[in-house]
Design a protein around this nucleic acid. Structure first.
Length: 774
DNA sequence: ACTTAGTAAATTCTC
DNA sequence: TTTACTAAGT
């Protein structure tokens, strides 16, 4: 066992750190100079090795500020810092540069923005912004969006940029008409982003590379600053990431990369598995350490996973083994359709929870596509089991939230054309498409930004007097508040500014539930800014917006809640659960249809299954359905080829009946199975229990698009009403007040609060961080 | 210029 | 099933 050192209590000798590590792990920890490749099999204690290694470095006199740790999610970086904090003290840990590639390089780029032709207030464009820019460019070029779908153009451009192919190179090697047109769009797209002082995700890396290439002094500074570099999930790095890392590590050569080629599942977004396969060729002096002992799974699970992955041709040699017990065999559930599959999964989980004492948080349901979650959710809800969806539609993707953020983005970077276009007529100001088109072509013609064109609106031809007035008012709101950018704290400014845009009023005036939800979501953004500002005094709108832009769905899984976790296998990487269910093992779904021809795709799908299976510690359940609802219609499919690849000896013999009974060796199941009356038509089969005992559990209107902001956050709030009229509450922004009315329940519960400062607000209880006082 | 109705398309994964 | 865009109507 590793003894955790309390913060601030002197420094115990190093062997404390190494205690409890196996030989290979200790070797990886001790090797701090020169290139090092750690091949870390699933469940081999990678995170622990990495944190201990960093702590070991710090204990041996390396300055924390010289350490750069690159991870794939912000969450991974945060956890790493926290764990190191326990070992060496929180303040030391804080000065390590740890974060995702994108967030670290965004930070660096802000510092050197002028060197590469941007201002430090540059905007980061997400996928939607990119698509919007591409559409605008296509319009301008007169290329039909029917013939050439913008989303396809976006992904071709992005994968080119991933591989560091410039528009010039792309256009030069373009063969088909499609590629030639994409090349043209590519060129204009790059120009447009540059003019907008905006970078897309790929730019964050590629512009960094350009910065380092063209500015030897910057390169030298950064090489000195980051003398020790560590890259996690190296098998998933793309070409740009690989290049940046090699440039930074070139001087000191203290580069430690960690990964597992068997878990490379991001080929589709440009990850090059070769990066890890060829590491020892790139760095001939590299030490290689293999972590092959698995501490997570049973022998059975490991054998099953191994029997699958060994069918892949391209991989590094390694043999995972474990001291863990044999464990129970794997269960395969054969189901008639997706609905029955969901029911059987719910029942299986329930019975395993009863027989093995698992609590909900010990269980995960994994699937290939997000669309599969729906049937599963319905089943869990009906059997009254607490669940929680990791990922799904993020809060920040909601229209009203994006609108509010777009307004804020314009404030810090008025050149951001995409954001202006998004909100110029939101709420409706009488600035229609025709006017916008005219202003745009004027801007292009003059070679000025969209914002500049708006400022000289009286010079734009063919403008109606009414439109000119509307535009001047719009631009006035922005410019007026821009002057306050350095005067007011971000939260105060944002509050006043958003109020001035008329966006909240628009929703407040429509007296329906949907509008109320939307208004509340905007409030929540403002609350969030206030909250962040309190946490970090130096917060600016620029840094806040950057933080939001680089957030990922996997970053906020609301741990600590005792719920069954549901997520895609991609999102499950790095996690583990005693009981794991993998649903939908069918040809055409897993592996996906397009992988059936392409052997490389097929290998990637196989690795994905490997990742899924190795999440399980004790029990693994696999399921498939003969037919399921897809694309709004019923499709039939055969069981996945992968099922046949799993070593038969690891699978429980099934008395496979198609009647929907469980096929485990475990008890036949008489576990309590309560049924909540679901939506009309949702009860089926054995649903004899139709009483209303559980009716206070709301059936969330998930698919009405409205009342489902932040699905995960909201999923927490499945319980009955939590506030009463007359109760005293406290709100982080509005202070204390009294509840004067409550409507709805569960997720739609709204409370009207009369605040002591005289304000009256209607708040969604699920979102507003109301604290009950007195 | 905005609203509405109807039709087409989309459903893999993500910083 | 849901969203997104287009065309016609007000």
């Amino acid at each position: 066992m590793l003894t955790l050192t309390p913060v601030g209590s002197g420094q115990p000798p190093d062997n404390d750190l190494l205690a409890g590590l196996n030989e290979n792990q200790a070797e990886a920890v001790r090797c701090i100079n020169g290139p090092l490749l750690i091949i870390a099999g699933a469940g081999s204690g990678k995170t622990r090795v990495l944190t201990v290694r960093l702590a070991y470095m710090l204990r041996n006199g390396i300055d924390a500020r010289q350490v750069l740790a690159l991870t794939f999610t912000n969450k991974a970086a945060g956890e790493m810092k926290e764990r190191i904090g326990h070992l060496v003290g929180a303040s030391t840990a804080r000065s390590i540069w740890a974060g995702t590639f994108h967030s670290i390089f965004a930070r660096i780029l802000r510092q050197y923005a002028e060197r590469v032709g941007y201002t430090s207030a540059f905007t980061i464009y997400d996928t939607d912004d990119q698509t919007a820019a591409i559409k605008a460019v296509m319009n301008q070029l007169g290329i039909s969006q029917q013939v050439l779908p913008p989303s396809g153009v976006r992904s071709r451009i992005s994968s080119a940029k991933n591989s560091m192919i410039s528009w010039q190179e792309y256009a030069r090697s373009a063969k088909s008409v499609l590629e030639q047109q994409t090349g043209q769009i590519f060129e204009q797209y790059e120009r447009r982003l540059r003019l907008s002082n905006a970078m897309d995700f790929d730019d964050l890396l590629n512009v960094t590379i350009r910065l380092l290439r063209d500015n030897p002094d910057v390169l030298a500074t950064l090489q000195e600053r980051f003398r020790y570099i560590m890259v996690d999930e190296y098998q998933d790095t793309n070409r740009s990431q690989y290049t940046v890392v090699s440039m930074l590590a070139a001087r000191h050569g203290n580069l430690c990369v960690v990964g597992d080629d068997a878990q490379s599942i991001y080929r589709w977004r440009g990850a090059e598995i070769r990066n890890i396969l060829d590491f020892d060729r790139d760095y001939p002096k590299a030490q290689v350490v293999r972590l092959e002992q698995n501490y997570r799974s049973t022998k059975t699970i490991l054998a099953a996973a191994h029997s699958v992955i060994k069918r892949n041709a391209t991989q590094l040699k390694k043999e995972l083994w474990t001291d863990n017990s044999e464990g129970e065999k794997i269960t395969v559930l054969a189901c008639r359709d997706d609905r029955e599959e969901a029911e059987m999964i719910a029942r299986t989980i329930r019975s395993r929870m009863a027989s093995h004492g698992y609590s909900p948080k010990d269980v995960a349901i994994l699937y290939r596509t997000n669309a599969q979650s729906q049937a599963l959710e319905d089943a869990l809800r009906r059997s009254n089991m607490a669940y929680h969806i990791v990922s799904g539609v993020s809060f920040y993707k909601r229209k009203e939230v994006k609108d509010a953020l777009a307004y804020l983005r314009i404030l810090v970077n008025p050149d951001d054309a995409e954001s202006i276009l998004r909100v110029i007529n939101e709420p409706a100001r009488g600035i229609g498409n025709t006017s916008i088109e005219r202003i745009q072509s004027y801007a292009v013609q003059q070679g000025i930004t969209f914002h500049a064109a708006l400022q000289q609106i009286d010079r734009v031809p063919l403008m109606q007097a009414r439109t000119v007035k509307a535009v001047s008012e719009f631009i006035g709101i922005i410019d007026r508040h821009r002057e306050l950018l350095n005067e007011l704290p971000p939260a105060t400014l944002a509050q006043a500014y958003i109020e001035a845009t008329g966006l909240p009023q628009m929703y407040r005036l429509q007296q329906n539930e949907e509008a109320l939800d939307r208004w509340n979501n905007i409030e929540r953004v403002l609350d969030h800014i206030a909250e962040q500002q309190e946490l970090d005094e130096s917060l600016t709108l620029v840094t806040y917006l950057e933080q939001i832009a680089l957030i990922s769905d996997a970053d906020d899984p609301e741990l600590g809640n005792n719920r069954i976790a549901m997520m895609t296998m991609h999102a499950a990487k790095g996690l583990e659960f005693p009981l794991v269910v993998i649903a939908g093992l069918e040809q055409g779904l897993f592996p996906l249809a397009k992988a059936e021809q392409d052997p490389e795709e097929q290998e990637e799908e196989r690795r994905l299954l490997y990742v899924g299976m190795t999440r399980a510690r004790e029990q693994l359940v696999l399921s498939y359905a003969e037919k399921r609802f897809r694309f709004g219609e019923i499709t039939y499919s055969r069981p996945s080829m992968f099922l046949a690849e799993i070593d038969k000896a690891t699978i429980a013999p099934s008395g496979r009946s198609m009647t929907g009974s469980e096929v485990t060796p475990q008890r036949p199941l008489k576990a309590p199975y309560q049924q909540t009356p679901g939506r009309a038509g949702s009860a089926r089969g054995a649903s004899a229990i139709e009483h209303n005992e559980y009716s206070q559990i709301p059936v969330p209107k998930r698919y009405t698009s409205v009342s489902q902001p932040a699905s995960r956050r909201q999923a927490e709030q499945q319980a009955a009403p939590t506030v009463r009229v007359g109760q005293r509450v406290k709100h982080p922004m509005f202070g204390s007040g009294t509840i004067s009315a409550v409507t709805g329940g569960g997720q739609t519960e709204k409370a009207t609060v009369l605040f002591d400062n005289g304000q009256r607000k209607q708040l969604m209880v699920a979102f507003a961080r109301l604290e009950i006082i007195g």
